[in-house]
Design a protein around this nucleic acid. Sequence first.
DNA 1: GTAAAGAGAATTGTTAACAATTAATTCTTA
DNA 2: TAAGAATTAATTGTTAACAATTCTCTTTAC
Lengths: 230, 230
Amino acid sequence: MTVNVKLNEYDVCKRIRDSVLEQRLAPGTKLTEEAICDVFGVSRNLVRRAFLLLSKDNIIDLERNKGAAIAAPTRTEAHQIFEARTIMENALLQQTMERATASDITEMRAHLEQEQQALNDGDTSLWIRLSGEFHVVIGRAAKNEPMCEFLEQLVFQSSLILALYGNQHAPSSCKGGEHERIVDAIEAKDLDTATRIMAEHMASLEGLLKFETKDTSQDLRAILATDPMA
Amino acid sequence: MTVNVKLNEYDVCKRIRDSVLEQRLAPGTKLTEEAICDVFGVSRNLVRRAFLLLSKDNIIDLERNKGAAIAAPTRTEAHQIFEARTIMENALLQQTMERATASDITEMRAHLEQEQQALNDGDTSLWIRLSGEFHVVIGRAAKNEPMCEFLEQLVFQSSLILALYGNQHAPSSCKGGEHERIVDAIEAKDLDTATRIMAEHMASLEGLLKFETKDTSQDLRAILATDPMA
DNA sequence: GTAAAGAGAATTGTTAACAATTAATTCTTA
DNA sequence: TAAGAATTAATTGTTAACAATTCTCTTTAC
């Protein structure tokens, strides 16, 4: 049984965030305050605060008197997000190259293992999340908090976009061992190679986009009730 | 008399934000909910929501059961923020170079005029705000919303840091017509020159920092009651 | 049949009282 | 007097009722 610790607004945020990341909550899905209250057993006030935070991260669209819906970036927004991410990945990769410690590399390798494990287990939603987090692990080694946080936001939005416009996000990309080759290049201090693979990687991700519309009605309770930590 | 439109959480944010930007609210200053309620004539709930937003932007530090205080970045954080900003300014400048339209240039020139006007009028706090906004105007011409928003955040935090650690922020830097020379270079499509001047500009800004502590007690009402739009 | 109007339900926004926590003060004791 | 405990005040956190708005479904008119 799930331990009943009292959740705060940040916990609620994280739960909703994770649901989106693992593609259990589709872009465009309407979130009513009441439903979220029921799912997490928290007050409306708390949910409203969580919504405020989520909207600041562009995870939900919050319209006054209209309520919240999982964000559904337009084509233009999607393009800008991928452009921003490509630039940030590049900039951070440079710093990571200079600053990554042995323990950073170890962490990257450990992350690669987790990814592989999820792939072996056939746990697609976990794998999707991990393959996004990989880029944040690389960014973290650059030792610049603000930039890394921004990258994290962009990585999240990329996943959202892939869920919206991707043919089938799943093991189509990233599975060609690109992540591993990037870590190899970082360890070898080979900036050119790392940069090139990363650029290819980003391009192939963006290449998956198709820009058609999708259906979005879903059962909130069934989706959100799952606690990934349990 | 100020028109009494009903403020929302974003309005309250902006007012507090502006107060910090114009150095009327010093880093470290404690903000009690009650005081902000009184100043703006809004409910506590609204203030609490505004605090949540401000803390997401690192404008205030929000500690549970302890309340809010204007953020006071550490030395390390300050350095990372300037590093991030330097990288972002550079990246955006490249895009601006390629994408700036004639009307973008016009907007830049108009902004320069405003800056000059504030300087002539001796309106230092306005000038401080405008000289920060200049960089956002440049960034906006790059036509990438997420990156520009991030830059905006970094510019804001730079101002905060200069208020905290700067000897005397005021017309010491930026007044050597550096902004104008950057616009000239953009118009001339001279990326190298623009990049160089921008780099020098950023370095000279960071050079103003001294890293000593400061006193922070202030009269909230007197500071915040001013409506810059009035 | 379609569109406008209206009643009702559902949802979001606001408020004020109360609870919990932290900070400040007073009172004790060595 | 100074340190520590106990009390009080100030501040933050939470809740539930109420108000306002939007949405939905029915009715009516053309």
